[in-house]
Structure formats: C-alpha cells, structure tokens
C-alpha cells in the first residue's frame, strides 16, 4: 500500500487478453459452423470456445483479485474502476435501448402503418393493434399476462435490490452474518426469478416467430434473463469472496460493482414489466 500511493499501478504483461480473443474467435467460428455446417463441428467449436473463455475469466479475475487483496490498488485505481463500471453499464443500457427502440417502433409505426388505407392493397383486412403477430401470420396466440408470474417476478427483483443494499450496509458496518445472509437472500431471489422466467417461457402460448410481438418479447426478456444469470453468477462469486474476507468496510469495489450491475438489471426489468407485459 505504501509504495502505491501516488503512482499508478500498471500490470505485468499478461496472456489473458490473447486467450480471451482466442475464445471469442472460437465462439464465432462455432456459431457460424452451427448455423451452416451442422451440429457436430458447431458444438465442438462452441464448447471449446466456452472452455477457453471460462479459463480466461478465472485466470484474469484471479489475477485482479490477487492484486486487489495484496493491496496494489490505490485510491486512484479504485476511481478508475468506478468510472469504467459506470460507463460499461451505460453501454449495456444502450444495448437494451436498441431493442426497446424496436418495440416502440413496431407498436407506434410499423404495425399501425401496415393497417392503414394504402397498405390495404397488400394486406387486405389487416387490423392493427397490439400485441400483433403481423398481417400474414395467423396462428392464434395468447399474449403474456402482466399480473401473474411477471408481477411476482417484479416483486422478487425489487426485493432482491433491497436485500443487496441491506448486505452492503452490513459490509460497511462490518456485520459479517448480516452480510452473508443478505447476499444469500439476494442470490436466492435471483435464482427464483430465473426459475419463474423459465416456467413462463415453458408455458408461453406463442414463440420467437410469433411476429414482431414474439420477437420483441423473447429478445428483450431473453437478454434480460441472460443478464440476470450473469448477475447471479457474479453475486455468487462475491458471496464466496465475502466468505473469504476479501472485503473491508472501506475497500470493496468489486462488491459495489456487482451491486450496481444488479440494480441496472432491476431497472431494465421495470421497463420490461411496464412496456412488454403491462401496457
């Protein structure tokens, strides 16, 4: 700590970036193979890609954790982490914005326009409205109800935000038991959310290909669910690190970063609940 006071920490050369690039390259090749050359080569490449990625994540984060615990990060490094995490979350917000944009566009522009007078020439008799599977597909479908599982899930996520904050307070006041309980509760709530989400998918009376409604529904909730999964995994890692006593009341940015991420996932869900399920 003492030496790292007013100089900045620059890590030693590292193999992880190249390993990470290899992983993404393998994943890309796997994806292309899966789509065009069949299951076997596709799954082999995808699996090796995931394996390499996992190796990289463990190795890289292992390094970072080690450096953090051995006190190589000073206050300035801490500030860097904060800026970076904030802007990373902003980029995620913009990713979701693209899909919300698609949803609004479909509801406000494309579906109504398809039902207007001129377009009767192509789609006679199409009555616009929302939810819509478009003028051509005619499979009957039942849209998702907001006030069943989704409402429960909203409650779960909101509660998980509270338990996480409760755990954070515990961390800052050095109350270990409360910290561990809070974290465990948050993780449990996240897992329950995922379980309900999976149940809901299983019961859905429509699919990815049910017009623009199915597409926006599944991509928005799907990417959200993926983010919840990532968030839960990160929470589990953090819980383990809490157990090992990695964090002090003053130094625990990893904890806060994951908390920020979790709240972000929470807020996206509110958007989903309002615009996808409810209104």
């Amino acid at each position: 700590m003492s030496t790292a006071h007013d100089v900045y920490y620059v890590p030693a050369p590292s193999k992880w970036p190249v390993v990470g690039s290899t992983a993404l390259f393998l994943l890309a090749i796997g994806m292309v193979s899966l789509l065009h050359w069949g299951k076997t080569p596709g799954l082999v490449f995808l699996a090796s890609g995931f394996a390499v990625l996992t190796y990289m994540l463990f190795g890289w984060f292992g390094n970072v954790i080690h450096e953090s615990v051995s006190g190589k990060y000073n206050a300035q490094v801490d500030a860097s982490f904060r800026w970076a995490m904030g802007w990373f979350i902003f980029s995620e917000v913009m990713f979701f914005a693209a899909f919300f944009g698609a949803l609004f566009y479909a509801r406000q522009m494309s579906v109504p326009v398809l039902g207007d007078l001129d377009n009767q020439l192509i789609w006679p008799g199409f009555k616009p409205g929302w939810p819509s599977e478009g003028p051509y597909l005619t499979e009957a479908f039942k849209p998702m109800e907001a006030w069943g599982l989704p409402a429960v899930n909203t409650l779960l996520l909101l509660t998980s935000g509270v338990t996480l904050t409760w755990a954070h307070h515990a961390l800052m006041e050095n109350k270990r038991t409360q910290l561990l309980i809070g974290m465990a509760a948050t993780i449990a709530l996240g897992l329950t959310f995922l379980f309900f989400q999976a149940t809901e998918y299983g019961e859905a009376a429509f699919s990815l290909s049910t017009g623009v409604y199915g597409a926006t529904f599944f991509l928005l909730t799907g990417f959200h669910g993926f983010h919840v999964t990532l968030g839960t995994l990160m929470l589990i890692v953090i819980l383990a690190r809490c157990g090992k006593g990695h964090f002090t009341p003053e130094h625990h940015f990893a904890f806060e970063a994951v908390a920020w991420y979790w709240h972000f996932v929470d807020v996206v869900w509110l958007g989903l609940f309002i615009f996808v399920y409810w209104m």
């Binding site: 479909a106 398809l114 597909l137 290909s209």
Partner: peptide, 18 residues
C-alpha cells in the same frame, strides 16, 4: 436470419425501415 423472428419483415408486423 436464423431464428424465425420478424423484426424486419412486414408479414410479421416488422419493417425493413426499422
């Protein structure tokens, strides 16, 4: 292209303009 969504296909209520 591959998973049957209709973001950009009028038949499913989507729009290439989108």
């Amino acid at each position: 292209r591959h998973f049957g969504t209709h973001f950009f296909n009028a038949a499913g209520g989507g729009d290439p303009t989108m």
